[in-house]
Design a protein around this nucleic acid. Structure first.
Length: 900
RNA sequence: GCCGACUUAGCUCAGCGGUAGAGCACUCGCUUCACACGCGAGGGGUCAGAAGUUCGAAUCUUCUAGUCGGCACCA
């Protein structure tokens, strides 16, 4: 079988995914072992509005690595995909589309039509991500794909709402909430971000007292327009400046209203003037003060951020920022504006549209979080679940966030989403039920209308761990739920630990009684080339599809997996190139094996009877690597696994093993030894491909299917009846019995010898084509090793002859080097040697050696070290020291021999 | 204000108590019959600074400086 000279990712990427999918390889049902343990992951459902970005690619890669490995290990494996309806995002897109294409507003086409448009939009654009995930090679079970507004998922949402309501965990009430005047909906605290405004102002307004004519009290505010809703001015009761004013009345300017001066501990006498205007309908703290003093708030704004009629005829209809200017102007005219100070302030903004969020008194639905929070805290306290990877800092951040949790605003003034299952009669009584007919029963047939609001998208995604498994409130036991929940791992970004992870924990614990997942693997952020978070405005984004096209999916995947778990990474194309080259290296190693295969086939038996030291060595190395990869992945140390595999394949397998056996394999002679050797190298290649498969699925499958002798008999026992594919082959776990320390030490010595000779050749400018005689003065026990490996030494050191002995008379004009264990290599260079150069070469090496020797000697001379360090450490160091001393002596005499 | 992370070779990053590592870049040499997306040989670091713990610190503790996060407050 001939392979092309360079690996072309596109060929492989176009072929395998469809086959894997259509043969059902991604489904847990492919596993025919009734006793198989399970492994399950649910995907963090991407928004239907989104397209794949590099963060998805990173998370999907890690999930796929886990899933593919576990599947190959014989687990009944499920990776469940899906998408999120993304309430506000979709609504905004459809509103925009409507405006652009038809010049209409949602109100003009009506709720029903609007929702129909949302579904259309979703059908048209919502599958982008799904198609892109196929390209990634993500081995998700598409037959179990879920959308958060699927019929059964919606039933689950309504059911959970009703349950929580009936148990008193959900309530409706008036609270100060975050209001986005542009989206015209309430937002939860988590959807509000902070923005620093260095150019902010603090306005000092003078409020005239009613009785003491001419006397005023100055308050400081950043939002003067809210004064139209003031109901009091508060001072600290211990503030001597104002104590005589407490209880007096103020004539509120522009509002024709008298308001009292009250005393409250909340007021900080040191800030501003020490007197605070109180606007309970527009500020959380003012609201609390209002409650303490029994003062009702006056709402002066509409839902679009304009002032309402409560603000007075002159302000009604004005935008809040126009109203601010107007208020300031009027105060100025009245001589009541004391001053305006520059004041850096942070304003709350809508996470998505960046509009300044208005705190506003509003009637909304909330989830009481104290009980739910305790479920999560107890789970962490008692069982340490979920386990965060990396644990620092996420465990602490997660628990301390829970400890300070406030109630969750879950209603949204949108149309796209899960409509709140609450109905009202004409008297305003509320009936909460899964369906309208049940609500109607509760209302004894009174005429009802449903609450117009929908639920926060995160309310529905909080149910993702179990609503995806068929749970809908009526059906509470399903095969999938029993089998796959709790899931094993959740791979997600830092940004949604509060929004999603914590809420899934609470809801799953509450509704199902168990935790949703064991491990949470928190990925870092992939930053742009400029080291800043990727964003459209910075135009520093990296499109994973472009990377796939340019470097191949496999190279992109293994690069993403090579990023340390949880660490932020600055994007750099050069690093992907490294792995593109690696893919090519693998391809060419396979090409070599196939070009020289003869009649060889993949045969695990060929690994059981190693012939040469090189065979024993590579088999030992392979098993060591397989074990190390397994333990790295068990700890979610993907990058560690990648490094191990990269260096094993490139350094050990390609640079050394292939080179060591090359002559024999490419030789014309066809004998039994050669064929076994060919089987062996083919098998090591095949085993390596299996280890690499979770990271590089396309490349490994593409090569694997071309190897002679592969088939379902190589599958894990759970898949013996399935069509052949590397993705069902048995994942090598590594066998400790096959680690051969002696063979590894032996080969290391041979490698060192070859490197020393190459160093001499290079430093002495010996032409690559020139063969040179090599002598080795072997120390005790090493003679045999060199003799046994004569052929590879001759080849790889380009030596004409290798003479191994205990003692030689050798010409002064020789280059020499000392090996670990005391052997010495001598290359006679009659006529070729440049003594100056050789002295330099020896001196460089001597210096290196002596630096180490000095350090070690100092350490051993330290009595405390000898006394307190572990005996083994001291022993090792003594051994090292005596070896270094021996080498030093030899090198010194070599140096002396050619003259200082 | 509270909590936290990061600072290691020119660049991007591993390592996190016992001889400073990788990839890229750099220097030198190679059309060696799998691969120039390659092969071989090299150069390059007082591990941000200071103090401490320890026989021993890049690795633990404290402080300082710089960079970046999260949370809270903001009349």
């Amino acid at each position: 079988m001939q392979l092309a000279k360079a690996y072309d990712p596109k060929t492989a990427e176009s072929r395998h995914y469809r086959r894997w999918e259509s043969l059902g390889f991604f489904r847990p049902e492919i596993n025919q072992n009734p006793h198989a343990s399970k492994f399950s992951i649910v995907i963090p459902p991407p928004n239907v509005t989104g397209s794949l970005h590099i963060g998805h690619a990173l998370q999907h890669t890690l999930m796929d690595v886990l899933v593919r490995r576990k599947r190959m290990l014989g687990c009944r494996t499920l990776w469940l995909p899906g998408t999120d309806h993304a309430g506000i995002s979709v609504q905004r897109k459809v509103v925009e589309q409507l405006r652009k294409e038809e010049g209409k507003t949602p109100l003009e086409i009506g709720r029903e039509e609007f929702i129909r448009r949302c579904w259309l939009w979703k059908e048209q654009y919502g599958n982008t991500i799904i198609e892109q995930m196929r390209r990634e090679g993500a081995s998700v079970d598409w037959s179990r794909h879920r959308f958060t507004m699927d019929e059964s998922y919606s039933r689950a949402v309504r059911s959970v709402f009703c349950t929580l309501y009936n148990e008193g965990w959900i309530y409706r009430g008036w609270r100060i909430v975050n209001w986005c005047p542009r989206d015209r909906t309430v937002l939860s605290d988590l959807e509000v971000k902070e923005e620093v405004r260095p150019d902010g102002k603090l306005y000092y307004l003078k409020y005239p007292l009613v009785d003491d004519r001419g006397k005023t009290l100055t308050v400081a505010t950043t939002r003067p327009e809210t004064m139209l809703g003031d109901v009091a001015v508060a001072v600290n009761p211990s503030d001597d400046r104002y104590s005589d004013l407490i209880g007096k009345l103020i004539e509120l300017p522009l509002a024709a209203r008298q308001i009292p001066i009250i005393a409250d501990e909340y007021v900080d006498p040191g800030f501003g003037t020490g007197a605070v205007k109180i606007t309970p309908a527009h500020d959380l703290n003012d609201y609390e003060i209002g409650r303490r003093h029994d003062l009702a708030g006056i709402l002066v704004m509409n839902d679009d951020g304009t002032m309402n009629s409560n603000a007075g005829r002159d302000f009604d209809g004005l935008d809040r920022f126009e109203a601010r200017q107007e208020v300031i102007a009027r105060f100025g005219e009245l001589g009541l504006l004391e001053k305006i100070e520059d004041y850096e302030l942070t304003v709350p903004v809508c996470e998505r549209c960046k509009t300044i969020v208005e705190p506003i008194l509003s009637e909304q639905w909330f989830v009481k979080m104290d009980g739910l929070r305790d479920l999560a805290l107890v789970l962490m306290e008692n069982e340490g679940l979920p386990r965060f990877w990396p644990e620092v800092p996420h465990k602490k951040v997660y628990t301390s966030w829970l400890e300070n949790l406030k109630d969750w605003t879950i209603s949204r003034q949108l149309w796209w989403g899960h409509r709140i299952p609450a109905w009202y009669d004409e008297a305003g009584n509320v009936y909460v039920a899964e369906t309208e007919s049940r609500a109607s029963e509760l209302a004894l047939g009174k005429s009802l209308h449903q609450d117009p609001d929908v639920l926060d998208t995160w309310f529905s995604s909080a149910l993702w761990a179990f609503a995806t498994m068929g749970w809908d409130g009526e059906v509470v036991e399903t095969e999938d739920l029993r089998t796959f929940v709790p899931t094993d791992a959740l791979v997600t970004g830092r940004d949604i630990i509060f929004l999603w992870v914590s809420r899934m924990v609470m809801m799953t614990k509450k509704l199902i009684g168990c935790h949703p997942f064991n491990d949470v693997i928190v990925t870092g952020t992939v930053l742009g080339k400029d080291g800043k978070p990727m964003s459209k405005s910075r135009n520093n984004g990296v499109d994973p599809i472009e990377m796939f096209d340019k470097y191949g999916v496999d190279a992109t995947r293994i690069y993403l997996a090579s990023i340390a778990t949880g660490a932020d990474i600055r994007w750099n194309d050069l690093l992907i190139e490294t792995y593109r080259n690696f893919a090519n290296k693998i391809w060419n190693a396979a090409r070599f094996c196939l070009l020289n295969s003869g009649g060889a086939v993949v045969d695990l038996g060929a690994l059981l009877e190693p012939r040469s030291a090189a065979d024993k060595w590579i088999i030992s190395r392979f098993n060591r690597v397989a074990i190390a990869v397994g333990s790295a992945l068990d700890k979610y140390q993907f990058h560690e696994a990648v490094q191990i595999l990269y260096h094993f394949f490139w350094d050990d397998f390609c640079d050394w093993y292939i080179e060591l056996v090359k002559d024999e394999i490419t030789g014309e002679a066809e004998n039994e030894e050669t064929s076994i050797l060919r089987c062996r190298i083919m098998t090591i290649l095949e085993q390596s491909l299996r280890l690499l498969h979770p990271f590089m699925p396309y490349l490994t499958e593409e090569i694997w299917e071309k190897l002679p002798g592969v088939g379902p008999h190589l599958h894990n026992e759970a898949y013996r009846n399935a069509p052949a594919s590397i993705m069902l082959s048995d994942y090598p776990k590594g066998n400790e019995q096959l680690i051969d320390e002696r063979a590894e030490a032996e080969m290391q010595l041979v490698i060192e010898l070859i490197k020393r000779i190459r160093n001499i050749r290079s430093e002495m400018n010996i032409k690559p084509g020139q063969r040179i005689p090599v002598f080795v003065i072997a120390s005790d026990g090493q003679e045999q090793i060199f003799k046994a490996n004569e052929a590879p030494i001759l080849k790889l050191a380009r030596a004409a002859s290798l003479t191994v002995g205990r003692d030689f008379e050798l010409p002064r004009a020789s280059a020499k080097a000392v090996l670990a264990g005391g052997s010495e290599v001598v290359v006679p260079l009659e006529g070729l040697i440049d003594f100056t150069k050789e002295r330099e070469r020896l001196k460089t090496q001597l210096t290196k050696l002596e630096n180490e020797l000095t350090r070690i000697s100092a350490q051993l001379e330290n009595e405390n070290f000898v006394l307190r360090a572990p005996a083994k450490k001291v022993g090792d160091l003594r051994k090292r020291k005596s070896e270094l001393e021996q080498q030093q002596a030899m090198m010194r005499s070599n140096l002396a021999a050619i003259g200082e």
